[in-house]
Design a protein around this nucleic acid. Structure first.
Lengths: 161, 161
DNA sequence: CCAATTAGTATGTGACACATACTATTCGTG
DNA sequence: CACGAATAGTATGTGTCACATACTAATTGG
């Protein structure tokens, strides 16, 4: 014991760092917890792929294009829940880095089909390994059934109109 | 039935909008689902308090100060998981709108104690009503025990180092 | 007493979200 | 078929937030 056993009971909270947190009220909110959890996972993600210099959104875009070559910008935007302007900014950034290319669709000349360049495929391959470890770090907190419930719960939240 | 029963089985997916989504692979990731759920709830929050012109972070700051008058900026920053620079920007904005005020601590003159102004208290009161409805819209998707698990799961994710 | 730490501040960069507006193209309906 | 509506991409601007860096003033600890 580092302290005398005569320490007053009143001191216990302070001793054990059990003072009520400033966020006590906020902790009851799903929105607050969701934001904090997302912030933590986002930070961890950025750190995990720091040497690749991509964000969650950029990685998601590369991933989506790799799985669906030729997808139009607007389709990618819808799939990822972004508007066209935001999608433009993200695709622009990846385009400037030579990670993807735009090709006008012959079927509908308004559309720009998106494809990964070899550089983009290469970067995505590296990203996949890091993301797998990153995900494992978080999913390992739960049992398989807990994780299943959690993923479904998050889907329900997303689909609220 | 709107279509002939002779429709080929191959057509079923198209008929029922069950084509695999472009995000099929991404859906398996906890980070992706978390981001989408958070984005949905964030959008809903902003819409819920649109007439008050505050963000989630600003509301959280007002809430925290209201519950803990005199809290220093750095304490609020720690509690909300933000750095000092970001906290400054948020407090500045609320300060400019006259929703809070800074008062130099007499005990430690480096510290700026934060207090809500009557305008800030008034705005927070309105916000609380809207946030309650907003939260209800999402928490009502779950049973009490499911919600308990979800909140705890999100706390675990936040606390990952 | 002095070095290290802490709190607040200032400044700059980058990523996103969203609004608006404009052009080119395609679609739908009279 | 023609023409207005809708769609895809683009350009531009605003606002929020995260983070890095650097600086000052104040406090703390050895």
């Amino acid at each position: 014991m580092s302290r005398s056993s005569k320490a007053k009971v009143d001191d216990l909270a302070e001793d054990l760092d059990e003072l009520p947190p400033l966020t006590e009220e906020l902790e009851g909110f799903l929105g607050y917890r969701l934001r904090r959890a997302n912030a933590a996972m986002h930070r961890h993600f950025i750190a995990a792929v720091a040497d690749l210099g991509i964000t969650q959104k950029q990685a998601a875009m590369l991933w989506l294009i790799n799985s669906n070559p030729g997808t139009a910008q607007v389709s990618a935007a819808d799939a990822l829940g972004m508007d066209r302007a935001t999608t433009m900014a993200i695709v622009d950034r990846l385009d400037e880095r030579g990670l993807l290319l735009r090709k006008q669709s012959s079927a509908d000349r308004r559309r720009q089909e998106l494809y990964l360049t070899p550089a983009g495929q290469n970067l995505l391959r590296k990203a996949k390994a890091r993301v797998a470890k990153h995900e494992e770090r978080f999913t390992s907190l739960f049992t398989a059934s807990e994780l299943k419930f959690l993923l479904e719960a998050l889907r329900k939240l997303r689909d609220v109109t």
